[in-house]
């Protein structure tokens, strides 16, 4: 390793640290991000502690109070099975949050790895992989997810997570690849090569930190999509067990009651989905602004 390449590397480390501090400061002042993170935080708390604080057990049936409109005891009313809608909405946050985060993290890991490799190596490997990913991307994600969930196992959350992750991987890979193609031309990469660093070091220690902003933004965008995908799949009866306190399932079970003017078992889980999705989008917007992507 020569002196000039070491100097470049140290300089880039110091710059990155400074930029990170500035971005965090900007995020704290960003209203969209603040609102988004607050709402997401609320639902996260519900997911973790919800079942300990709800007034009723989420599965408990009270046959004395079936299809009761919102009131002082049942804040969100009860559904046609005599179950407390409020308790089910609060507890229902767990599954959708866990599944959507897990699917997005998995998809991001896989997509980032593919994007790094294809963007760095280019050549025939890049061409083949990207064409394959484009082919996968050309099919609507929800169709792939629905077919795969139905074909493999109708109501396994774990498999559903893997399928959604698989569906997200191409988009993330393309985003990362584009960023890597640009980064690979910078001096610090050439310097690392001159230092005869191993390829994994160059990919994950040198390039990856510099392409994190688009990855983070892509992660939040995909998280929003994952929330919708899981809600849609569970609404369609796929991916999760029927009857579980899950927002999409709750809507699926109760939507027909709208025609009987019983809006509450459907409206509240729908609002919950909307607030969660919007919160993630606000976070994404905030990150976009700060990262100036």
């Amino acid at each position: 390793m020569n002196d000039s390449s070491t100097e470049i590397s140290k300089k880039s480390d110091a710059e990155r640290l400074q930029i990170r501090k500035e971005r965090i400061a900007l995020l704290r002042r960003n209203k969209a991000f603040t609102i988004g993170i607050t709402v997401l935080g609320f639902w996260t708390l519900c997911a973790i502690f919800g079942k300990y604080v709800t007034p009723f057990k989420s599965d408990e049936q009270n046959f004395e109070f079936v299809s009761i409109s919102p009131n002082g005891t049942y804040w969100f009313g009860t559904d046609a099975n005599g179950q407390d809608v409020f308790s089910r909405v609060i507890v229902g946050s767990r599954l959708i949050l866990v599944m959507s985060f897990a699917a997005t993290i998995l998809g991001t890991l896989a997509g980032t790895s593919l994007g790094l490799i294809t963007g760095y190596f280019k050549g025939w490997f890049d061409i083949i992989v990207m064409r394959l990913l484009e082919a996968i991307s050309s099919i609507p994600a929800i169709i792939i997810a629905l077919l795969a969930v139905a074909a493999i196992d109708g109501q396994s959350p774990t498999i559903t997570v893997f399928i959604i992750a698989f569906v997200f991987t191409p988009n993330i890979a393309r985003t990362v690849r584009a960023a890597v193609l640009a980064e690979a031309e910078f001096e610090y990469v050439a310097a690392a090569k001159l230092r005869t660093e191993r390829t994994p070091h160059i990919l994950f220690k040198e390039i990856l930190p510099n392409v994190m902003p688009p990855i983070i933004v892509e992660f939040t965008v995909r998280l929003g999509y994952a929330i919708f995908a899981i809600a849609t799949l569970s609404f369609l009866g796929a991916g999760v067990e029927y009857g579980s306190p899950n927002w999409g399932t709750q809507i699926s079970e109760n939507w027909a009651q709208i025609f009987n003017n019983q809006w509450w078992p459907t409206a509240f889980p729908a609002i919950a989905i909307a607030t969660l999705a919007v919160s993630v989008n606000l976070i994404s917007d905030g990150l976009l602004e700060v990262f100036e992507i």
Partner: peptide, 10 residues
Amino acid sequence: QGAAATAAGA
């Protein structure tokens, strides 16, 4: 009540 039909109904 089929799931797909439920979606359509919704």
